[in-house]
Amino acid sequence: MKRIFITNDDGYESPGLLALKEALSPLGHVVVVAPAVEKSACGHGMSLTHPLRFIKIDDDFYKLDNGTPTDCVYLSLYSLYDNPPDLIVSGINIGSNMGEDVSYSGTAAAAMEGALHDIPSIAISQVLKDKNHFGFDFALAKDSIYKLAKKVLEGGFPLANRQFLNINIPQITKQECKGFKITELGIRMYGNDAQLHRNPRGEEYYWLGLHPLSWKEREGDETSDFSAVFDNYVSITPITLDFTARDKINTLKQWINNG
C-alpha cells in the first residue's frame, strides 16, 4: 500500500486539510500531522528555540504543538516513519499561493521540506475571492489532487530532486474548469497594508492586512499561474529550490573584477 503524508499551514482543524485527507485516502495509507494553530505566511521556518510535541487527534492524525509546517514534515519523517512515505502533499490551503507569495507560504514550505528529503511533494492551494466567506466543498481541488497524486503514485514523479509541484485551484465548479495548465510563477504586485491601531491602554500597535491579489505578466508571456487560474485552469507550476541566478554569474564575475 502506498504511504501518503499530508500537512498544511492553516492548522489541524482546517476544512481544506480534512478535504485533502478525504480525497487522498482511497489512494493509500494517509498520515496527517498539522500545526496546532494557523501558521500562514511563516515561510520555511523551523523551530529551534522551543520543544515540539505530537498530540494525537485520531488514528494517524496528529497536531504538532508549537510546530510550523516545516517542523511537521521534518519531525514526522524521523519520528513516525522507518522509511520515507511515497508522497507528501501540503494543503488544501485556504487562499492562493502564486507568484512570489510562494516564498512566504507555509504550505509551499512543507513541500519544500519534502523535496529536500528527495520525496515527491506537492503544495495545493484554493484561490478565493474572500477566504472568510468561501462556503463550498473543495470539489475541484479534491478531484484535481486525486488525479495528480494517483499519477505520481502509479507513474512516478516528473521532477528532479529538490523540486516540487505548486498547484493553484480556481474558485469555480468542476464543470467550469478548462483543465490543467503548466505555468510559471507570475509577478506578484505588493502594497503595504500595515494598519495602525491603539489598544485599550492607548499603546500603538500594527496589524498586517492582506494585499489585493494583483499581478503583471512578463513581457510577451501569458503563461503565469495567475493568468491560468483566472482563465479557469488549474495551475501546475514546477518549483526548484536552487535560487542561484545562473544567468548573472559571468556578469557578477566581471563586476567584481572591474577596477
Rank of each mutant, 00 (worst) to 15 (best):
E203S: 08
E100A: 13
Y205C: 08
V102D: 00
I236M: 14
D118M: 08
K150D: 15
V152R: 03
A108D: 00
L185E: 03
I124L: 06
G114N: 10
L196N: 10
G156H: 09
G191F: 04
N168C: 07
L165A: 12
N192V: 04
F136P: 07
K131P: 14
L213C: 07
H117A: 12
D101V: 03
L148Y: 05
D225M: 02
L116F: 12
D130G: 07
G156I: 07
I172V: 14
G191W: 01
A115E: 05
I172M: 04
A123V: 05
E113V: 11
E204F: 13
R201V: 05
E154D: 15
D221G: 00
A110I: 03
N199K: 05
S227R: 13
A115G: 08
A228H: 00
E154T: 15
A111R: 00
I239N: 02
A110T: 05
F157P: 01
E204H: 03
K147T: 15
N161Q: 13
T240P: 00
E219S: 07
F164C: 02
Q175E: 15
S125I: 12
V152C: 14
P158E: 11
D101Q: 12
G155T: 02
F180L: 15
L196V: 14
I169K: 04
L210Y: 01
G202M: 06
E222L: 08
I145Y: 03
T183K: 07
S103F: 14
N232C: 07
E100K: 10
P158D: 09
Q171G: 04
E222N: 12
K129D: 09
Q163T: 08
V229Y: 07
G202I: 10
I124G: 04
I172D: 01
R218H: 06
W207L: 13
G179D: 10
V127D: 03
A139S: 15
D231G: 04
E184P: 00
T173E: 02
Y104S: 11
F138L: 06
L159S: 04
L153A: 10
S224I: 00
E203N: 13
L210T: 10
I236D: 01
D137E: 15
F134G: 02
L210Q: 09
A141S: 14
H117L: 11
S227Y: 06
L153V: 09
I187T: 11
T223R: 07
H197F: 15
W207H: 12
E217T: 05
